[in-house]
Nucleic acid binder design. Structure first.
Lengths: 301, 301
DNA sequence: ACGCCAAAGTGAGACAAATTCATAATCCTA
DNA sequence: TAGGATTATGAATTTGTCTCACTTTGGCGT
């Protein structure tokens, strides 16, 4: 028995219009085609779907059972097709984001909030747990956008620059380093450094400062949440180096001091990577624009 | 865009087996056919369903969306097909019953209880509210079994005799008629007669006794429920004529007397009508057998 | 980096299925 | 029972799907 959606559609049309001829009309086929089709299904199913002895053609018990199935299934199919139309027109789509940078939640969330309002049909998600190989995941289409500060030359991928930020030193006002106008690598030697729980190569302090200078802090403590890092810093249990946008609030609290790292200060650039084919999608362009402009407001305010 | 179940089945198979070739195998078509098919859907949908740049072929975002639909829809279709197989094999079916006779609930319920256990796949129901034209409803396939005591010669319908019963007079022990060994038409002239709320032509007392004798009771009161009729009779607010099986309990209570109607007693035969085509169905045969034998137990006990 | 193997894609022709056209059979109504 | 409306049927045609044979592609081992 090989039921197809065509059969369900026909059944429903016949029931709705109350006749083969009218149904055939709405289905844009001839009455004859429908008649053949009905005969075909009944032969296959081995069950009479219609009550013949009365015009206008009526559904039998089995036909009613099939109609119930049709009325549950057909709307689902229509929804699916509608969604695909949305996809094709660019209204809809998927935006699953991998962030290599822990602190990015901070500006990403407001960005996505705005984005969602503008593109309700886009399926937005942040996929944690693939900070390791986010770019391969991008190419495997497991995610659609990667936030990273290390652009790579990867065929099929495009890195869109977002904005610059300064990895900034933060410590308790009680900490002796609060006295200095800026900090240097050596200053970390007798400090407890609090970092996100990721590879050293992916942490700005190490990659840009400590590893080149071959300086090892007295201790390194890994903490997941930015708020907790700040709390630990406030109670002088350690110091941290965080992107400037994270410090917008701490900056003016008397518990903290923030200082440049090195006299010139560090500067890094954040990028968003997409597949090259996806870059022109309208919603992608929009989210990139938001990600370029919104974080600046945070950095300033 | 013309999605068909075939496409959903293919998509699911490819996802499940993780490859075109293996999927084609389980679908009993060639790998080539599947490849063509996939191409066809993608062209229609205007959306890439699979991620090509990696073997083993993987679903894209859109493909996953379609897969979710498939996983909801295909089991429903399978259930439907299974049910149709049941129908064809005679295991399953519909048994919607119209009763012309109000008191028949009494014996029908126990019968159906037994029946349901034996034929769990048959959709059993009692359709009230078409006591008027039950036989036309049978022919229109709105119901599948009609309980009636008036067989008609109707082409396409079969009347199966069930059992005989005696419309029996019941009154309060206080009622003067309690003195008589049996009642006759004239006895009703100064009684309140309690009946079910249906046409006189369908009530045994009238059809068999009062109408031929041109006797009109002092009053007629229509009551829906058998239990209520018995209650009213017990408190001597009226008398009634009910099938003997209904009286099995009242018979031995001192509040009531039951008497034959006329010296000889009345006898009626109950029938079950089915469509001729349905009569040989195994479950139909079974319910008829039960309806022939079970009520006898009630009449005796 | 090269080449091999497995897996997916392509194109032409064969085959199957759905549809149409023309017409016949039914049913309902007047 | 005649007539209009509705459904059924058969043969021809169109459409679509599948197969066969072959090419292309991506992954992997040496």
């Amino acid at each position: 028995m090989h039921l197809e959606l065509r059969h369900l559609r026909s059944l429903k049309a016949i029931h709705d219009t109350g006749g083969l001829a009218r149904a055939a009309d709405t289905l844009n086929i001839t009455q004859s085609a429908l008649s053949h089709q009905v005969k075909g299904i009944e032969e296959q199913a081995g069950v009479e779907l219609f009550v013949r002895r009365s015009k206008p053609l009526k559904l039998s018990a089995a036909g009613l059972r099939m109609l119930r199935a049709a009325e549950r299934i057909l709307p689902e199919i229509e929804a699916l097709e509608e969604e695909f139309r949305g996809l094709r027109s660019g209204r809809a789509g998927r935006l699953h984001i991998a962030i290599e940078c822990h602190a990015c939640f901070d500006w990403l969330f407001p960005v996505l909030e705005q984005f969602r309002r503008a593109w309700p049909e886009v399926d937005v998600d942040i996929r944690p747990g693939l900070a390791f190989g986010a770019l391969p995941a991008l190419m495997r289409e497991e995610v659609d956008l990667v936030i990273s500060s290390d652009p790579e030359d990867l065929p099929g991928a495009v890195f869109h620059p977002l904005f610059d930020y300064s990895p900034t030193f933060i410590a308790s006002a009680q900490n002796p380093l609060a006295e200095k106008p800026f900090v240097v690598a050596e200053d970390f030697r007798d400090q407890t450094l609090i970092t996100y729980p990721v590879d050293r190569g992916r942490l700005d302090v190490f990659a840009q400062l400590l590893t080149p200078a071959k300086v090892e802090p007295r201790a390194v403590r890994q903490v997941e949440l930015t708020a907790v890092i700040l709390m630990l810093v406030a109670s002088n249990r350690g110091v941290a180096v965080l992107p400037d946008w994270v410090l917008r609030e701490a900056k003016y609290q008397p518990d903290y001091v923030t200082r440049k790292v090195t006299e010139a200060g560090l500067t890094k650039r954040l990028y968003a990577a997409t597949r090259a084919v996806d870059a022109p999608l309208p919603f992608m362009a929009h989210v990139l624009r938001l990600a370029r402009t919104e974080p600046l407001k945070l950095q300033r305010g």
